[in-house]
Design a protein around this nucleic acid. Structure first.
Lengths: 205, 205
DNA sequence: CCTACCGATCGGTAGG
DNA sequence: CCTACCGATCGGTAGG
C-alpha cells in the first residue's frame, strides 16, 4: 500500500528510475540499491512492486516493443490504400518514436542478451513483426511499380538502422529539430527505395 | 614468462577470450574469472598481462577504432582524385569491416559508457574523425555537382548506421554472402547520396 | 515501507 | 602461473 505522497505512483517511479539508470550505466552495472535510492525507498521495499531485477528489465523491453508495434500498426491502418504514403508515415513514426523514447529504445537494443531466454524470444519476435510490416509496405510499392526495390529485407534494415542510430545521438535541445530530422530521413529513405518523383509528388507532404 | 605451449601467446588468448565474452554477455556481466577460465589460467595470473578489467576493455575499444580508421584512410588515399569512387570504396570497407569484426564493433558501440572518462573521450574522438572523413567525401561529391546532398551530416550517419546494423546480424555462414550485402548497400548509399547515373557509370564496378 | 541479514561473487593483491 | 585471501557489493529474503 504505497503512499502517493507526491502524486507519482511508486511502480511508475521505479520504472522511470530503472530506465534512467539502465540507460546511463547499463543493466548489469545498475544495482537495485541505486534504483531504490532514486525512488526514495530501500532495496527491500522494491520487492513489493517487482518480483526481481530481470522482471524489471523484461517489462521495460516488452513494453517498448508493444508501444512501437502499436504505433506502427495505427499508422498503417490510416494508409492502407496508398503504400507510398504508408512508407512516409512509417518513417515519420519510426524516427519520432526512436528520438522521443531514445532511452528505452537504446536499452531494448543493447540489453537483449541480459534477458532470460523466454523473454528474449518474445522481444525478438516482436522486432521481427515490426520489420515484416515495414518490409510489406516496401514490397507493395514495388508491386505497384512505383519503386525500384533492390532487396526489400536490406532496405527495411536500412530504415530500422536509422532509427536505432537516431536514438543514440538525438537530444531534444540539440542543434537539429525533430521536424528537420524526420524530413531529411524521409527524403533519404524515399530515394533509397527508389520511389519515383511522380509517386512522391502525388502524396507529397 | 608465459609458456607458448600451443603456439598462441597468452596476451592474445586473453584478448580473444575477453572479446568473445564481452560480446556474448557484456562487459559488466563478464567476470575476470570467466576470462581466465577460457584462457586456461587462474584469475591472479591475468594480472601478469593486464593492469585491470577496465584497461582490458579500453585496449579492445581503442584497438578496433584505430584499425577502422587505418582501413578508411588507406582506402581514401587510393581514390584522392575521384570522390565517387572514394565513396564506393568507403562503403565497401565500412561494411566489410563491420561484418568481419562484428564482435569488436558491437562492443565498441555498446560498452562506451563502461569506459573511464579519459578513454571514453579518446574513442569518441576517433569516431568523430571517422565520420568526418566520410562526410568530407560526400561534400566533395556535392561540390563537384555529382550528387544531390540534402544534409551531409545525416547522410554520413545513414552510412555509419548501416555498418553498425550489419554488425548486429551478419553471420559468416548466414543466408547472404558478404559480396551481395556490400553490393546492395553500395547501391542504396549511392541512391541516397543522389549520385547521378552518369557519375556511377564512370566509376562503376 | 523498514531494518537486518544471508550466501555468493566480484576485482584485485600478497607472496611464492 | 599458482594458492589463498581481502573488503566490498551484489540480488534477494525474513519478519515486522
Amino acid at each position: 500500500m504505497p503512499r502517493p505522497t507526491n502524486g507519482v505512483r511508486t511502480p511508475d517511479a521505479i520504472r522511470e528510475a530503472a530506465i534512467a539508470l539502465f540507460y546511463e550505466h547499463g543493466y548489469e552495472a545498475t544495482s537495485l540499491r541505486e534504483v531504490a535510492a532514486k525512488v526514495g525507498i530501500r532495496v527491500g521495499s522494491l520487492y513489493n512492486h517487482i518480483s526481481g531485477k530481470d522482471e524489471l528489465l523484461s517489462s521495460i523491453m516488452i513494453g517498448i516493443m508493444d508501444d512501437l508495434l502499436a504505433a506502427l500498426r495505427g499508422v498503417l491502418r490510416e494508409h492502407e490504400d496508398d503504400p507510398v504514403a504508408a512508407l512516409r508515415a512509417c518513417v515519420d513514426t519510426h524516427i519520432r518514436f526512436h528520438a522521443q523514447r531514445a532511452r528505452e529504445v537504446f536499452i531494448g537494443n543493447s540489453e537483449l542478451r541480459a534477458l532470460p531466454a523466454k523473454e528474449h524470444r518474445r522481444v525478438v519476435g516482436k522486432r521481427d513483426q515490426y520489420e515484416k510490416l515495414i518490409r510489406g509496405v516496401i514490397e507493395e510499392i514495388s508491386a505497384q511499380g512505383k519503386a525500384e526495390v533492390v532487396d526489400a529485407r536490406l532496405q527495411t534494415y536500412a530504415i530500422v538502422a536509422m532509427g536505432t542510430h537516431v536514438a543514440s545521438w538525438y537530444k531534444p535541445r540539440g542543434g537539429m529539430s525533430l521536424e528537420a530530422i524526420v524530413q531529411t530521413y524521409t527524403e533519404l529513405i524515399l530515394r533509397q527505395v527508389g520511389v519515383s518523383s511522380a509517386a512522391v509528388a502525388s502524396t507529397g507532404s
